[in-house]
Nucleic acid binder design. Structure first.
Lengths: 331, 331
DNA sequence: ATGAAAGCGCTAACAG
DNA sequence: CTGTTAGCGCTTTCAT
């Protein structure tokens, strides 16, 4: 391994000068610079980022902790976020350490501990769906943190969210405007902020039109394909005329049920799903959905994080991004 | 920041002893150990991995370089791979640095250079689809490398692939066995190994049944939704009775065309796509596909990589994983 | 305009 | 069974 010393020797300058040439951190005469560049090239010198990090206490690396579940379509959402993050990071010369909490609180805690020993300059975390995940305890404050997608109760910090309430509100309102009144609502387990807010949006839209919220039209269960299927069945049997499904996995389950039982969309039942993927275009009819700006979440989150890393002391920001209703032909 | 020195002082031992307690790297008397543990706890000591890496020349971190394209469904494939990698890595106390080449040779080269300064213990790379990406030049050999998914020509190294030839061969054969004979083939740009091999499989299956390969039934283009749509149109007009689509993005485009023009599947045209996602279940009829074991690729690749990191000197291995035909109702 | 040298926190060779 | 100490490769203060 060729080190800064070798370069210094070859260029007949001090290591300090080499370092300053590399980092452009103080004036170096042009002639000297050229000697250094030449030496670096000749020796094929690569600065050692580890040594740099140790000395400067800066790693130019940020961590991302997301809750992926094996083989789950919702991963796509977080991966788009990761994509947005990676892009901004690259533009700024940062690296990304990706880590997975498996939607499990214990794993999440462990991963945070790993990050604590890791010298990351900052962390973006999509918190696990849990009650009292004690972020304040584990996150030791050595690095700034930006939360995304979910708002764990009692946590203070920068946070980037999607306006879930508004998303489902707009969706349900669109159904209402088309004349649907018996609207079923399928959601993943309640008690987590995203689900709760989407339910609120549903209720609010109904209330505005003075349509009573009927408990039997609201179906909750674990966010799985099978549950989506099952709950769509129940709601269909309860003779709803439209369906709003508050997450992508259950959307697929619901559509699967409707297809299998040849319930005509939108003639017999209208439907709006959640999250927009290419394949929504190829169901028949193409599915209308509430689209979340995943890539944008990542982008905004990491921009905020970089601000903090660069010393911003502004008070915590909560950014709320808009969800968007994508109209296709399913209602 | 509390360092090993502080712990040593508090526990009244040397830093060497503390280090050895932490790493269990030489015998330490029980009593001494307890003192050290206590001190660590009291001070809330976290070993500094950067310092450790600098000294031991080992980072316990591996890099992953994948070619993601913004908003592209094929990302899902690589993300499943990343998932598999992350899982094995976590079990072994390793971290993952994720990096994206954007399917672009220049970016890829840059990212490799970043990795070269980074002290990673190993690299998993899904090479960009390119002609002469000079891996041998950039990859300086400081760390082991495992290639996945694609086999860049002229590259020697450990590599984990899916049997593309066999995948499409089995698919096309299944179509032939059902009696289809005018089978169209839609592929992304040829000249990259995955596409070429899948085409070979198609031809081989036809040959075996003594059905002439008709050039006008083979359609090639950039792997986009729109191209899939367009090429499906052309083949439909050429009156093929079945369609084999050799990647997931074009599969969606093709299905989209068929849906829009109300071409009945499988009555008017049979179809097999590539890659298996949940949403294949909710097209009507559910789509039959060739399934690639993405998670498995990641797992196998990183297992091989860890072997190398631990000093294996066996000759380069080429692992070929099986693709699997998933029968649903589309032919 | 440049150099000398200390030291980041840790590991490991050597010594006892 | 444990301690001393050199140094990994770099940045940065102090000096000139």
């Amino acid at each position: 391994m060729v080190s800064i010393k070798d370069v210094a020797k070859k260029a007949q300058v001090s290591t300090a000068t080499v370092s300053h040439v590399i980092n452009e951190t103080r004036f170096v005469a042009d002639e000297t610079k050229q000697k250094v560049y030449l030496a670096m090239k000749d020796l094929n010198y690569q600065p050692n980022r580890i040594a740099r990090s140790l000395r400067s206490r800066k790693s130019n690396t940020i961590g991302l902790l997301v809750p992926l579940v094996a083989e789950d379509t919702s991963n796509f959402f977080f991966m788009s976020i990761a994509n947005g993050i990676e892009k901004v990071l690259k533009e700024n010369g940062y690296n990304l350490i990706l880590s997975n909490s498996n939607e499990d609180e214990v794993t999440e805690k462990n991963q945070i501990r790993v990050f604590n020993t890791q010298l990351i300059d900052g962390l973006v975390i999509a918190p696990v769906n849990g009650e009292d995940s004690a972020y304040n305890k584990e996150l030791t404050g050595d690095y700034p943190v930006v939360y995304i997608d979910r708002h764990p109760s009692g946590v203070e910090g920068d946070i980037v969210l999607v306006d879930n309430l508004r998303g489902s509100y707009e969706g349900v309102r669109a159904l209402l405007n088309k004349g649907y009144e018996r609207i079923g609502f399928i959601t993943g387990t309640l008690g987590i902020t995203t689900s709760d807010e989407r339910l609120k949006g549903y209720k609010q839209a109904l209330k505005e039109k003075a349509i009573p919220v009927r408990k039997e039209f609201i179906k909750e269960g674990p966010a799985t394909f099978e549950q989506g299927y099952q709950l769509a069945k129940e709601l269909h049997e309860a003779e709803v005329t439209a369906l709003f499904v508050a997450n992508n996995v259950m959307t697929m389950g619901a559509v699967s049920y409707l297809n299998e039982h040849q319930v005509k969309i939108p003639e017999e039942i209208g439907i709006i799903g959640y999250d927009d993927y290419d394949w929504m275009k190829i169901t028949s009819p193409p599915l209308s959905v509430v689209r979340q700006p995943a890539f944008e979440i990542g982008k905004v989150a990491v921009e905020q994080l970089l601000k903090r890393i660069n010393g911003s002391k502004e008070k915590f920001a909560e950014v709320m991004l808009d969800a968007e209703l994508v109209q296709r032909g399913s209602f």
